[in-house]
Design a binder for these strands. Structure first.
Length: 600
RNA sequence: GGGGGCGUAGCUCAGUUGGUUAGAGUGUCGGCCUGUCACGCCGAAGGUCGCGGGUUCGAGCCCCGUCGCUCCCGCCA
């Protein structure tokens, strides 16, 4: 007989009755009846009830066992009587009558009970992650993650993609997030950087002629965390393709995502791969107030600046401002507190407030009610109701600001909030869309200069010769430029960001020049890549869906820690491994480093 | 860097207007119990109320500071 087990704890059935078997696992639960002890033995596969009576030789050993001890139990499989069958357990028709027991490992009093589905504070869970991972919820999530990754790999390979590994110790990139630096021992004062993404490598792989690349790629960014953004590191399904247009990338990626959501979505409705709506960035900002709209929310924002600008509308607070209207279907009869609460929330967000009108039917005519309704009457009211598609019984909220993007932003947050308050967001759906036509550049108000708006390696949607001839001071044209850049959004989460890349060295130097980088500087920083582009570069493009967020959505979780095996705290500490921690003097010396602590 | 929430027994939490010895559940330890599956019953041990300072006759509770966890803003091409 095997030293540890002949079966797993999830395996035994009625058909096994009469066999002598051996199981190993953790004590999930112990029920001591004095003359009779039940032990639920748990392993990766399941739970089996084991039982022993006082006259058995192994009784003393079993009697001493406590929660989470690791035991090896040998005995006969017996059928349970009809009254004692446990229908909630896959092994519930049988039990193990213990004949031999040995203790493989003991456990101290638990700082975090494994049994039960209670919630515990993050600090305890992270410090004792190995215990938390034994618990059903996390164990299930981590297995789901592994299965999703396996499925993604299979789907990618089936589409002709090949997985390649790219370096972890590499060079710093001047754009984007803060780098993690690794000091060089051999080159004093010099540093490697951990990749924020394998961006340049995957483009080089295309130049090298491999045609279709993918990788489950670790990415490192030294930025603060959020519930849907791990601090420090995360994983992407990184992919790149040669000789493709934007449509080709869409056609390759949408089926992979839709497929994996169909496979693991437990019957929830998924947008079909060929039906992901394409929403231009500008339209998303107007209709949803964000570039990652939750399309399950039926509310659509409309611009009503023109109506508030009319001479007969005398509501001074909204004059000469961008005013966005957020319809709240069915909210008309809500109590005053509903409106006050939203107004208070908006003030908390730094806005002046959130004006509103309630629409009612008065003898067949649509009338407005509420504090600012008296300013908007007649044609203005009718036009507004028509524009926002509201009717009697609905309400309309207003987000106004002298700056259009701030009005849009607040409207977007209000849309989400109102959708939730009114229960308009159905849970049983995964709604995908593409956000396309991102602006190439944006105005940086702090530095009074033009910046890349998203990915500096994207191809501008503009005639090549005209782009090369662009006057650097022609801000109107430059800020109007769009890029072949796109995101995939699902239920309000940005799942993926990608682009058709700029593979033309001249266009690239010009693109960086517009963003304020001297040609020599660009040549120096991206020497490898630009040099490669001068030796035969195929047109190429790709994207990189975030693995962690995909799993989070499919697991129905709202925090990435729930789908990450060993996450850090929000403040980027690993409480289990105790990282970061000080380096010893010898290490510092080898690395030519001296620590200068910040002044208090 | 900024704002909100939380921090009390191994664990999860309660703790009134500032007032005697800080409680419950669970776990742990001891006793009883042969059909439980959140087993049950009896008993016991277990506390730097995150930390430091202040106000007060008296602080878990009020004030100031600080640390940790968390959510959000900034940041995240």
């Amino acid at each position: 007989m095997h030293a540890y087990r002949t079966h797993t704890c999830g395996q035994l059935r009625k058909a096994d009755v009469g066999q002598t078997v051996r199981l190993s696992g953790w004590v999930n639960r112990r029920r001591d009846h004095g003359g009779l002890i039940f032990l639920d033995l748990r392993d990766h596969y399941g739970v089996t009830q084991c039982v022993i009576e006082p006259d058995a030789a192994a009784f003393a050993t079993v009697d001493s066992a406590r929660s989470e001890w690791v035991l090896t139990l040998t005995g006969k499989v017996v059928a349970r009587s009809d009254e004692t069958v446990n229908k909630d357990l896959s092994t519930g028709e049988v039990e193990l009558r213990i004949e031999q027991a040995s203790v493989q490992s003991q456990a101290q009093e638990l700082p975090l009970p494994v049994f039960g589905d209670h919630t515990y504070p993050e600090e305890t869970r992270l410090t004792y992650r190995f215990l938390d991972l034994r618990r059903e919820r996390l164990h299930k999530n981590i297995m789901l993650r592994a299965n999703i990754v396996t499925s993604l790999r299979r789907r990618m390979v089936e589409q002709g993609f090949t997985e390649f590994q790219t370096p972890i110790l590499t060079a710093s990139s001047p754009e984007g997030a803060r780098d993690f630096l690794v000091p060089s021992r051999r080159y004093p004062g010099q540093f490697y950087a951990l990749p924020q993404a394998p961006q340049q490598f995957k483009q080089l792989i295309m130049v090298a002629g491999f045609d279709r690349y993918f990788q489950i790629a670790p990415c490192f960014r030294d930025e603060d965390g959020r519930a849907d953004r791990s601090p420090g590191e995360f994983y992407q399904l990184d992919l790149e393709m040669s000789f493709v247009t934007q449509d080709d990338v869409f056609a390759a990626v949408a089926p992979v995502l839709a497929g994996v959501f169909e496979e693991f979505g437990q019957g929830k409705k998924v947008t079909p791969a060929d039906e992901f709506p394409r929403i231009p960035y500008a339209e998303a900002m107007l209709k949803y107030g964000t570039d990652k709209p939750d399309l399950r929310n039926p509310i659509e924002i409309v611009d009503v600046s023109e109506i508030f600008g009319r001479a007969e509308v005398e509501f001074k607070a909204f004059k000469n401002k961008t005013v966005r209207a957020i319809p709240a279907p069915g909210a008309g009869p809500q109590p005053r507190s509903f409106f006050d609460k939203l107004n208070e929330w908006a003030r908390g967000e730094g806005a002046a407030g959130l004006g509103y009108i309630q629409f009612e039917d008065e003898g067949g005519a649509l009338v407005g009610k509420g504090p600012i309704a008296k300013f908007i009457t007649g044609a203005a009211l009718a036009d507004m109701a028509k524009a926002a598609k509201v009717k009697a019984g609905d309400a309309l909220f207003f987000s106004a600001d002298a700056k259009a993007d701030r009005a849009a932003n607040l409207a977007g947050m209000a849309r989400t909030r109102i959708g939730r308050e009114l229960n308009l967001i159905p849970d049983g759906e995964y709604k995908f869309c593409w956000i396309v036509d991102f602006p190439m550049y944006e105005w940086n108000e702090d530095d009074k200069k033009i910046d890349f708006s998203h990915n500096p390696f994207s191809m501008p949607q503009f005639d090549r010769d005209k782009f090369l001839a662009l006057d650097k001071g022609d801000n109107d044209t430059i800020l109007g430029l769009k890029a072949y850049q796109y995101d995939i959004v699902c239920n309000g989460y940005e799942l993926s960001s990608g682009a058709i890349r700029n593979h033309d060295p001249d266009v690239m130097l010009k693109a960086f020049e517009i963003a304020g980088y001297a040609r020599e500087e660009t040549e120096e920083k991206f020497k490898g890549m630009i040099n490669a582009f001068r030796h035969g570069a195929p047109p190429h493009g790709g994207t990189a869906p975030g693995i962690d967020r995909i799993v989070m959505l499919l697991a129905g979780e709202e925090n990435l820690r729930e789908v990450t095996m060993f996450p850090m705290t929000q403040s980027a500490q690993d409480l289990l491994m105790n990282a970061p921690s000080p380096a010893n003097p010898k290490q510092l010396k080898e690395l030519h480093l001296r620590v200068v602590y910040p002044e208090k």
